[in-house]
Amino acid sequence: MPKIRVSFIVNQEPVEILAEPWQTLMDALRENLRLTGTKEGCGNGNCGACTVMLNGKAIDSCCMLAAEAEGQNVTTVEGLANGEQLDPLQQAFIDFGALQCGFCTPGFLVSARAFLNENPNPSEQDIRFAIAGNLCRCTGYDKIVRAIQHVADSGH
């Protein structure tokens, strides 16, 4: 099966890859582009560890083919910081201890960033529903919710 040439934008840079037709966007990001911040957890859309933004909206990159990304705009966790300046969410996750092993953290950060961009003044319940597609097995979620709430309350 011939590989497919796919041109798209990743973290504001144009990229071009050769993808297998059955390769997921997640695998293309990790293997072709070496953007290993995007993690594979369940591989079937339950855990959200592979969350990236597609045209500004959070999606599971394990449930999308790389070939479908042609012409699209993708943001991974590597695209959240501005140079050395962390995204306020990244800083808040550090400050609030909102991670333990850290495997789910990239997915939470991307989900939370997409959510706050569209909902700058969320309630706690809004936040909990927005991150319902991201599973964490060690923090117990409260610190994650508090970190996101803090960023929202400080207007970032």
Partner: peptide
């Protein structure tokens, strides 16, 4: 239907 991520796709 699923999560926000799923509903977006």
């Amino acid at each position: 239907i699923g999560s926000v991520q799923i509903q977006n796709r």
